[in-house]
Nucleic acid binder design. Structure first.
Length: 494
RNA sequence: GAGCCGUUAGCUCAGCUGGUAGAGCACCGGACUUUUAAUCCGGGUGUCGUGGGUUCGAUCCCCGCACGGCUCACCA
């Protein structure tokens, strides 16, 4: 047994004394009629002059006591609610002995209280609630983090996010913005007549992306099941099923590393529009990002000190051109895999001897180009080999009608004209199967039912996926994905 | 997965060449009717992440482990 921490013990004993001596149990309170939030009070009574009280107004507010300054027969406190922090003034004369004495004796920092009173500005000019009545709504048995040192231990901030949120209004603000961004994405899509749908998170096949899934087991079915790594294959089935425009915003799960850009569960938006192509998806992507920026403070976006221009049409460049630009190698002129491997070896890349020229080009793109794409850039025309669900470019079958959007060197969106040729789709899956069999754990799974759906007829369709967490990161200037996920995945302590 | 750094009171941190720990805030008791990092008086509440080793003696030196952060690799 660990010794009980002293402060917790004292607070707990105080609670027991409160129950015994006053017959008052703060945890029995169920409801408090709050009519006035603190930000509104601050705005509405801004006109009060120093030392002025508006006794005609009766306020009812509530919140958490963040600081307490006791002065004998008067007390000041700072009350924090979800909107703001406002000073409270308790006066012996105004409240009466019993009421004042109760507050002074029993209310501590961290406690939740409901207050009634009048708007008032102190001589020093601070807008304050002159409290006439105070109700203890709930007690805190644990102390708040340091009132000006704050909470800097990132581990505690992520593991005990509630503490982080209590003391850091700016952290709360990031998550308000996250919500506004997601609302904005929904609105953009719904204004375009797109239906929000929900597809399985738990399924027998986790397809639609290159990633290792989380595996679980369904007892009643006696079946291995997987958490989805993408929503793509289900959403396209719905386009087959006569929903012209569908989207889903939801969690994907990928059993991979954790770092500042990756969390094992992350939020993605995928949208599919019948009769649309990759060009439409570029326009949609720009609309989604601009509208989301508008929703959280405008289009002047600065990320980690870099000004991002999201107002101008995003740059468009093919992967072939970008690789040529950065490495001097023109893969359009490389016609055999051997030739590509020789070039790669000459450049010091580790080559196993099985890589295709397309895989090598992609590796060079990742190594030499990605990091340089700071301003929003649509990278177009990925090789067919690495794009098993995208329509081929009719002018060159080795490449697809696809784009990825990069911002600050990071992929934010991925889109293509969807492959709707069921014969080709089968060939692509077979190719993925070969990769899987030769040890590529992240190769796509073969989904026979999906092919069946495509065989039933998928109209020409444009599809887009957006990494919502990353979008939120850019629009809130957050350095780590963990700063935009309320409860990021953490290894259990001990 | 690799490298580097960190882990001391509820919070933020200090702790010298090895001699069993300290500050501010918080907390507890008291004073105080306009404070706002309130002030004044009194009180230290800690298995110094964990397990070993070296040593007469370890928060400190050495090794392992755990957790976290950063960088790199892979992935969105």
């Amino acid at each position: 047994m660990q010794p009980e921490e002293e402060i917790f013990k004292q607070r707990k004993e105080k609670l027991l004394r409160l129950r015994e001596e006053e017959g008052y149990d703060p945890y029995r309170i169920e409801k408090w009629e709050r009519t006035d939030m603190l930000d509104r009070i601050r705005k509405e009574f801004d006109h009060l002059a120093p030392d002025e009280t508006d006794a005609s107004v009766h306020l009812r507010s509530a919140g958490r006591v963040m600081t307490l300054r006791k002065h004998g027969k008067a007390m000041f406190a700072n009350l924090q609610d979800e909107t703001d922090t406002l000073q409270l003034y308790f006066q012996f004369d105004k409240m009466g002995e019993a009421e004042y004495g109760f507050v002074k004796k029993w209310v501590d920092t961290g406690d939740w209280i409901g207050v009634e009173g009048h708007p008032f500005r102190t001589q020093r000019g601070e807008l304050t609630i002159l409290v006439t009545k105070c109700t203890l709504l709930s007690k805190a048995l644990r102390t708040m983090p340091d009132k000006w040192g704050g909470l800097t231990d990132t581990e505690v901030r992520y593991r005990q996010r509630y503490l982080d949120l209590i003391v850091h209004p700016d952290v709360r603000n990031v998550f308000r913005k996250r919500s506004a961004i997601i609302s904005s994405v929904r609105k953009t899509l719904e204004d375009a007549g797109t239906l929000e749908v929900e597809t399985p998170i738990l399924s027998v096949l986790a397809g639609g992306a290159n990633a290792r899934p989380f595996k679980t087991f369904h007892n009643a079915l006696g079946l291995d099941m997987y958490l989805r790594i993408a929503t793509e294959l289900h959403l396209k089935r719905l386009v087959v099923g006569m929903f012209g425009r569908v989207y889903e915003i939801g969690r994907n799960f990928r059993n991979e590393g954790i770092d500042t850009m990756h969390n094992p569960e992350f939020t993605a938006m995928e949208v599919y529009w019948a009769y649309a192509d990759v060009e439409d998806m570029m326009r949609l992507t720009e609309d989604i990002i601009r509208n989301a920026a508008d929703a959280v403070g405008g289009r002047h976006v600065t990320y980690q000190g870099v000004e991002l221009d999201i107002e101008s049409p995003f740059r468009r460049a093919t992967m072939l051109d970008l690789v040529r630009e950065k490495t001097g190698i023109d893969f359009a002129a490389v016609s055999t895999d051997d030739e590509a491997r020789a070039i790669a070896r000459a450049r010091g890349m580790e080559i196993k001897g099985t890589e295709s020229r397309f895989a090598i080009m992609n590796a060079m793109f990742e190594a030499h180009v990605e990091d340089t794409l700071i301003q929003p850039t649509f990278v177009l025309g990925h090789p067919t080999e690495i794009s098993p669900l995208a329509k081929r470019n009719p002018d060159n079958q080795d490449y697809t009608r696809r784009f990825e959007l990069f911002i600050c060197g990071r992929e934010v969106a991925n889109a293509f004209s969807e492959l709707n040729d069921p014969l080709d789709q089968r060939v692509r899956f077979e190719d993925q199967l070969k990769k899987k069999e030769s040890g590529d754990e992240e190769a796509h799974v073969f989904d026979e039912d999906f092919i069946n759906a495509i065989e039933t007829g998928l109209p020409p369709t444009g599809g887009l996926g957006v990494g919502i967490d990353r979008l939120v990161m850019f629009l809130t200037d957050s350095r780590s994905i963990r700063d935009v996920i309320l409860f990021p995945t953490m290894r259990p302590k001990e």
